[in-house]
């Protein structure tokens, strides 16, 4: 049912809309182009600020399983799009420190999970403890670190975390369950993959290009009535990068 705009109308639309994209700094706003030419860092050269070397190795391996890269099929993966850099930067944000959350005791861990999380950890602590427990489990079960396991075994470990088949309490962590850690890791990985590159992930808006989200264009007055027609323009980012 969907129709593609024909080449003529697509070109006309591109020409017309190019003039709508401001290219100078906006009064009181953020310049749309100031950082557009700054290349996103290469993951291999990035020095993590929060995560230690061992934690970083775990994250690289885990992210690659959660959203596998181009090598594993179509579309960019978490490593292609700098998701681990996003995670590292989030740990130093208000979110990482749980600055907005109510973290006063007592911490009652016996209530219904439907009443929301009750463990006393900020996301920074969730990652530190979660990675340590997972590595301990991998050493006990497989005699190796997570990142040294083959892909299928890594997936089995991640599934074990997700389903709480890996018992954190028996490994010494009694306040937080394996699935609590896994859900942070998965949720944050998707956030890094799909949020604006200004936050460190979604390098060159590759994930947006894959799904067809135009990013921060935020102006569709001349498109809203074009029903069931594929939107022809690539995304722009908060920093003015165009894809």
């Amino acid at each position: 049912m969907a129709s593609q705009p024909d080449n003529m109308s697509r070109r006309a639309f591109l020409r017309g809309s190019a003039t709508l994209i401001p290219t100078v700094g906006l009064a009181g706003g953020i310049s749309l182009t100031a950082q557009a030419d700054e290349p996103a860092p290469n993951l291999s050269e990035y020095q993590p600020v929060f995560f230690g070397e061992d934690e970083w190795s775990f994250l690289l391996a885990a992210c690659d399983r959660l959203i596998p890269g181009e090598h594993a099929g179509s579309g960019p993966g978490a490593l292609d799009t700098n998701v681990p850099i996003f995670l590292d930067r989030q740990m130093d944000s208000p979110y990482g420190h749980a600055e907005r959350w109510y973290m006063e005791g007592p911490f009652d861990l016996d209530g219904s999970p439907d009443l929301g999380f009750q463990y006393p950890y900020s996301p920074r602590e969730v990652y530190q403890k979660g990675i340590a427990m997972t590595q301990q489990y991998c050493r006990q079960e497989h005699g190796k670190r997570f990142e040294q396991l083959d892909g299928d075994t890594q997936d089995a470990v991640l599934k074990g975390l997700e389903a709480n088949d890996i018992n954190f309490a028996s490994l010494g962590e009694r306040q937080m369950q394996a699935s609590d850690f896994f859900s942070h890791l998965l949720e944050n990985t998707k956030e890094g993959y799909l949020s604006d590159p200004i936050h460190g992930g979604n390098k060159h808006m590759a994930a947006w290009k894959m799904v067809g989200f135009p990013g921060a264009r935020a102006s569709y007055r001349d498109w809203v009535d074009q029903h069931d027609v594929e939107y022809p323009l690539g995304p722009v980012s908060l920093n003015g990068e165009r894809g």
């Binding site: 906006l26 799909l194 604006d196 908060l238």
Partner: peptide, 13 residues
Amino acid sequence: AYPKAADELQYGI
């Protein structure tokens, strides 16, 4: 002011 608000992570999440 544009484009600040167009940031799903910051505001939506």
